Each structure stands twice: as C-alpha cells, then as structure tokens.
Amino acid sequence: MKPYQQIAIDECGEPLVPIPPEHFAFEIPHHYQKLGAPYDNSKADSPYYLRQGVVDSLIAAQTQLQQNHPKWKILIFDAYRPVEVQQFMVDYTFNQIALAQGCDFPVSEDKRQVIIEHVYQFWAVPSLDRATPPPHSTGGALDITLVDQNNRRIDMGSPIDEISERSYPDYFANSNHPQEEQHHRHRQILKNAMINAGFQQHPNEWWHFCLGDQMWAWLTNQNNSGSQLIARYGRY
C-alpha cells in the first residue's frame, strides 16, 4: 500500500463530465486506445472526462497559463481511466520492460517481482478495493503537457509515461546545461499553473496532477503541517 492510499474517502457524488474541447488540446488518437485498452465498458465515452470540480479548476489553470504564455495550451494526454484500463496498462508496461531486458516468457517469479516493483513506482496498482482506487479511476487525476500556438509540444525533457528518473519533476533542477535548464523551466511553468489552480503534482511524474483524490489530500497534508484533508472522490 502506498502512503496516500491510507487517506479516507468521503465520496461527494460529483458527476464525471467531458473536458471542454474549446479550452484545451488533446492527444488524438488516444495512446492507450491505440494499444487496445478496454474502454468499451467505461462509464464515459472517451478517456477525456473528469469530475466537474476538476474541470473547473483545469480551466482556471489554463487561464493562469495564458497570462504569461498567451498562445500556449494545456494538452490533455489522459484523464479518467477505468480500473480495467489501469490493469491493461500495468500489464503492457510490465511486458515492455521484460522484453527490453531480454526476459524469457513466462517471466521467472524472482525477475517478475523486480519488474513489477519498478512498474509500481510509476503506475498505480489496479485495485478494485473501493478504499484504494487508482487515482485516474476517480476522475480526479490527469496527465498533461503543454503545446504552442502550432500545437507542437513544449519540450519537457522526457516523454509522458517514461519509466526512469527523468520523469521526476525536478530531475533537471540542478543542471547547468542550457537545454536541460529550459526543460526545468517548462516543467515549472506547467506546475505553477496547476498548483495555483489547486492541483497537486505526483512526486515521481512531471505530467501527473490531481485534485480531490487520495493522492491530492495526502500531498496537501504533507505540504501544509496540521492539515487533515480527506479525499472527496472515490472510484467512479
């Protein structure tokens, strides 16, 4: 169990709603759908859904971003993710790592344990327990980056979903290399817009932000001594 999963959930019943296309850019076609992820039985007709309050705060973040970068937009890479899709992507990531390491299939139990621990540094456990939902399955978490006026991605120094230390938000913070300094500035621009709108950032992923779920409550409590927030979004 990860520390944030110990946070209590008091489900508020807020609806899952589509992210308004007029405000943002989108990853189309959606990467996980291209891989064959099972969205067919989802409660939303696309991955681009969030809780209503999260959408409202996301629009506020976009407004904040454009005060200093008027031609930039937030690109939505992923948002609501059913537990079945979470399981599919955990399995897919496990297999990709195993292949990259030259493992024979089926993977031996000792090697399997090492790989799955590595996977779970970045991917949440696809738990069906209502007390420990994957963040994306609550409608309170999303994966994002930035694009310019020509819909070209702003260079963040590593791709979304990369399983490496380069994914850590402050990985380039102490670099003296001009390009890496720019990567850090770009990550900070994204982070500042989201934090100012009430989101929290995943400690291991520069692209993952959350609001209202267990991770958000846990991070908020960690950052504000004496705060005892609980989650308002459970599994949807």
Rank of each mutant, 00 (worst) to 15 (best):
W207V: 00
H69T: 13
L75C: 14
P15A: 07
P135C: 14
K111L: 11
Q179L: 11
D170L: 05
P134W: 14
N221Q: 03
D40K: 02
E109Y: 06
F199R: 10
H202A: 02
D56R: 09
S127A: 14
R185I: 12
P133A: 14
Q66M: 11
G53L: 04
S46M: 03
L128S: 04
I116T: 11
G212T: 01
L142Q: 04
P21M: 14
L128A: 02
E165D: 15
I160S: 07
P169S: 06
R185C: 00
H31A: 05
Q222W: 10
N221M: 03
Y48C: 10
Y4V: 00
H184F: 13
W218H: 10
Q149N: 11
V125N: 08
Y39W: 15
P159L: 14
H118Q: 15
R81L: 15
F199Y: 09
P133Q: 13
A98Y: 03
Q222R: 15
P133V: 11
P21W: 10
D45P: 13
Y32L: 11
L99Y: 13
N95E: 15
K191S: 15
V119N: 02
P126Y: 05
V17Q: 02
N150D: 15
H118N: 13
F26H: 08
A98K: 10
P159G: 15
R152D: 15
Y39G: 05
P38A: 12
Q149R: 13
D110T: 15
K34N: 00
H177G: 01
A79H: 09
T145R: 04
S167H: 02
F209V: 04
G212Q: 00
R232Y: 03
P29A: 06
F172I: 03
E27Y: 09
A141W: 00
T220A: 07
T93L: 06
C12Y: 00
A197Q: 05
D148E: 11
M156A: 05
Q96W: 06
A173N: 06
D104A: 13
Q86W: 04
I74K: 07
G226P: 13
N221Y: 01
I19P: 04
M215G: 07
P82Q: 01
Q201C: 03
Y49K: 01
F88L: 07
I97K: 02
P203S: 11
I189M: 13
R81G: 10
I9E: 00
H183C: 09
A79E: 09
T145D: 04
L65M: 01
F88R: 02
Q188L: 15
G13L: 08
Q179W: 04
D40W: 01
D10C: 03
A197D: 04
G139I: 02
E22V: 13
E117V: 01
Q200F: 00
L50Q: 12
D143H: 10
D143R: 06
N95M: 09
F122H: 14
E109Q: 11
D155T: 01
N68M: 06
W123N: 06
F209I: 05
K2N: 10
L146F: 10
Q101V: 11
F199W: 05
T63R: 09
T132K: 08
I144P: 08
E27F: 08
L128D: 09
A79M: 08
I28D: 01
Q33Y: 03
V54Q: 07
V114N: 06
P133K: 13
S108N: 12
V90P: 14
